[in-house]
């Protein structure tokens, strides 16, 4: 077990290193750099910039050095906890993304919990009441949930809120709390706004999980041991929860590995539509203005988050399933 954990940890470190390279490549891909974007934007508004000033800005941001030097410098800074400087916001990246990432993680974690809270009871119900009205309703709902992209669902909810109830559901805080320091009242206000994004993000994920759980549980319920247990006169709730349901939780846990990236990714686009102060919208803007360090840091952290999600799901699987535990510790 310990050996497995160590192995997993070593692998994680290699992945983190690869992540920094990929992030850096993605960030360097757009033609031109922040200075050229800035210059063309200024020229668009009628300003002219001399070649000298241009070079000066470039030097100031270290953009005149070759790629590999910039990469090494960037990684060096990150390991020192310095994420660089946002050209666009004129503030250190660390200050900018701290709170936004916390909110992103909060929404992702809450959505994970809600996803499972929706999917597990419904999946069990659908499988045990196959072809019942409820099963049909949930299966249909699952199909539609998979077909509606997050951002459309967010738009529809915004639309319904504004058109029929006259309330604006976007954002995470009411106006009066926007810049207020943290307090109980602000926290309550946040709690009022959170359900919409959490619900939107959780819908798509739970639709997939319901399908998986329903299918595996249906297969499991047909097996001999269930029939044996039933014929022994075990109460049906016990027959259901003692073995088949526990076995079916396995694929759900291994699904966590893809669910987490999915939720982060769905969360990003939902946040853009709902205008939430999370990392997604900031990253979109940073990419468009070629604010390299900011966009890079956000992509890096989002990827690290999902990598951690994968590790957690792997470890959980080992904890839950003795078969996998045996296999992994013997290898």
């Amino acid at each position: 077990m310990h050996k497995y954990l160590l192995q997993r940890l070593g692998y994680l470190i290699i992945l983190l290193w690869v992540t920094t390279i990929v992030t850096f490549i993605v960030i360097e891909l757009p033609p031109g750099d922040y200075v050229s974007t800035l210059v063309s934007r200024l020229e668009g508004t009628g300003h002219t910039i001399s070649e000298e000033t241009r070079q000066q800005i470039q030097k100031e941001f270290g953009l005149d050095k070759p790629v590999h030097i910039r990469y090494i410098k960037w990684v060096e800074q990150i390991t020192n906890g310095n994420l660089g400087y946002s050209f666009d916001w004129k503030r250190p990246v660390k200050e900018l993304i701290g709170q936004r990432l916390t909110l992103t993680i909060t929404i992702a974690l809450l959505s994970t919990i809600v996803t499972y809270a929706i999917a597990i009871p419904i999946g069990i119900y659908s499988a045990t009441h196959q072809y019942s009205l409820g099963d049909y309703i949930f299966t249909t709902w699952g199909f539609i949930g998979l077909a509606i992209p997050n951002f459309m669902l967010a738009l529809v909810l915004l639309f319904i809120g504004l058109r029929y109830f006259g309330v604006n559901l976007s954002g995470l805080y009411s106006k009066e709390f926007m810049d207020a320091p943290w307090s109980i009242a602000k926290l309550l206000d946040l709690a009022k706004h959170l359900p919409i994004p959490v619900f939107v993000v959780a819908t798509g994920g739970s639709a997939g999980l319901i399908r998986v759980l329903r299918a595996t549980l249906l297969d499991e319920l047909e097996k001999q041991y269930v029939i044996t247990a039933r014929s022994k006169g075990l109460p049906s709730a016990k027959v259901l929860f003692k073995y088949p349901v526990r076995i079916c939780l396995n694929p759900l846990i291994s699904n966590l590995a893809w669910l987490f990236p999915h939720l982060i990714s769905g969360g990003a686009i939902t946040a853009i539509v709902l205008g939430l102060p999370t990392a997604g919208p900031m990253m979109l803007r940073a990419l468009i203005t070629q604010d390299t360090y900011l966009a890079g840091s956000i992509l890096l952290f989002l990827t690290i988050l999902t990598l951690l999600g994968t590790v957690i799901s792997d470890v959980l699987l080992v904890v839950v399933d003795p078969r996998i535990r045996m296999e992994r510790s013997s290898s």
Binding site: L15, V18, T19, V22, V26, I27, L29, P30, A257, W258, P261, H262, I264, S265, G266, A268, I269, G280, M283, L284, L287, I288, A295, I298, L299, L302, T303, T306, L307, G309, T310
Partner: peptide
């Protein structure tokens, strides 16, 4: 590794 990168942020980064 590719699967573990959240797809929409990656798409956004590449499309931008």
């Amino acid at each position: 590794f590719i699967i573990s990168i959240p797809s929409i942020p990656l798409w956004i980064a590449l499309a931008a």
